[in-house]
Amino acid sequence: MVSLLEQITADLKDAMKERDQIKLNTVRLIKSALMNEQIKVEHELNADEELTVLNREKKQREESIAEYTKGGRTDLVEETKKELAIVTNYLPQQLSAAELAKLVATTITAVGAQGKSDFGKVMQALMPKIKGKADGKAAAKAVQDQLS
Rank of each mutant, 00 (worst) to 15 (best):
G71S: 09
L51A: 01
Q60I: 00
V77Q: 02
G71A: 07
Y68C: 01
G72S: 06
E50N: 14
E67V: 09
S64R: 12
E49Q: 15
D75F: 08
N55L: 14
V77K: 00
N46R: 15
E50K: 15
V53M: 08
D75Q: 13
N55W: 01
Y68F: 06
E63Q: 08
T69R: 08
E62D: 08
D48A: 06
D48R: 13
V53C: 05
Q60F: 10
D75I: 13
I65S: 05
R61L: 14
K58V: 07
D75L: 08
R61G: 00
E63D: 07
G71Q: 12
E63H: 04
E67P: 00
A66V: 05
E49I: 14
T69D: 02
E49M: 09
E67T: 09
A47N: 13
G72W: 13
D48C: 04
L51P: 01
E49V: 15
A66M: 05
T52A: 06
G71I: 02
D48Q: 13
E63L: 10
L76C: 02
L54I: 14
K59V: 02
Q60R: 11
D75Y: 07
T69E: 09
L54P: 06
A66N: 08
R56H: 15
L76D: 00
N55Y: 10
E62C: 06
E63M: 02
A47C: 05
Q60A: 05
Y68A: 00
E67A: 04
R56Q: 14
D48H: 11
K59M: 04
N46Q: 11
T74V: 08
R61K: 13
K59W: 06
Q60L: 06
T74K: 11
S64I: 02
L76R: 12
R73L: 05
R56I: 11
R61I: 00
L54R: 12
G71W: 14
G71Y: 04
N55Q: 15
E50D: 13
L54G: 08
E62Y: 10
K58H: 11
K59H: 07
T52E: 05
E57Y: 03
D75V: 05
Q60N: 12
Y68W: 09
G72H: 08
E57C: 07
A47L: 12
K59G: 06
T52R: 12
R73N: 10
L54D: 11
A47R: 15
K58I: 06
E67S: 09
K70W: 01
V77I: 09
V53D: 08
T52D: 10
L76A: 03
K59L: 13
L76W: 01
N46L: 12
E49K: 07
V77R: 02
K58L: 15
I65W: 00
A66Y: 03
E62A: 04
N46D: 15
